[in-house]
Design a protein around this nucleic acid. Sequence first.
DNA 1: CTCCAGGCGCCTT
DNA 2: AAGGCGCATGGA
Length: 347
Amino acid sequence: MSSAAICGEPYLFHLWFSNGIVTAEVVNAELQTTFAVRDYDLAATLDSGQAFRWQLREGAWEGVIGQRWVRLHQHSAIAAKNDRGARGVAAGGHRVGFGTIEARVARPVSDWRWLETCLQTSVSLPAVLAAFPDDAPMRAAVAACHGLRLLRQDPWECLASFLCSATKQIVQIRQIIALLCERFGEAVAVPHGHMPAFTFPAANRIAALTEADLRTCKLGFRAPHVLAAARQVVSGQLNLDQLATLSTEFARNELVKLSGVGPKIADCVLLFAYGRQDAFPRDVWVNRALRELYFPRRRPTPARLREFARTHFGPFAGFAQQYLFHYIRVHLRPRNGQDHRRRDAIS
DNA sequence: CTCCAGGCGCCTT
DNA sequence: AAGGCGCATGGA
């Protein structure tokens, strides 16, 4: 039996050749779909250090989710008019609150929930922002990064990725993960003529490698951590599915048992993969944001800073953390001369 | 050359 | 509890 597919709009026709009989069925599978979104800044979201595999190419964001290659393109009414890309800013400086995200894949799909889940397009941002503390730093961060969202990522990919993140710049993390995928992931279907794309290597694939294999991907001292985590997942000693059933505190306790996973990486996984929005990863940037924005020239003790982070930001603390991270990293503190992204606050 | 990068683990006060 | 240091690697 063989099959051929002819893509039309909006339906896909599958032709089946079997025992000399040709049958055709119309299935509701498509190569593309459109999400209507409000308060969604796709570029900021995909480029805010929570995921490391999205690449901007010819105005669209390309990535791999699970086994699927995806290209995303955001349209907003204002952006189309003044060519400011997906991050439209209306006259007067207010970001447009609506628009669409067009998604294209390489093989037809009939169910787009996987993408809706990843992008969290059903989340109402105003409800989240309304729960943020009403103070000057949060207002500034929200004004500067309006539309920034949290993604929902695969737990294994998220855990392995952040195990690679220790003492690395984001560009370096991206490079390490790209190497891991090229060398040890599986090729996925891409549009004709497109450069190849790969899955993130599954835990059982990594578990079968050696530390030296991983070091060829420039993991350095992180290699044994990634290897050990993969082997614990394969052995069942770490059950990533079961973590979803635990309280945030218990799940965190399980994660920090892993070599190379401390409170920061554990909270990244809890926030970005398990949707625990009370998790509040504190890295050097967020600590800097907390000190400079909330304790200017006051030098809080680490215990005080920890207590503040734990109590100040409310039920969506993790969301607030992402705003602070993106705000101080992109809008307040360019780190080197080639990064001229500093701009005045949106007035 | 130096210093630092979405940390962690282990050591010492 | 708080601070120091090594760990690979690459870029400024």
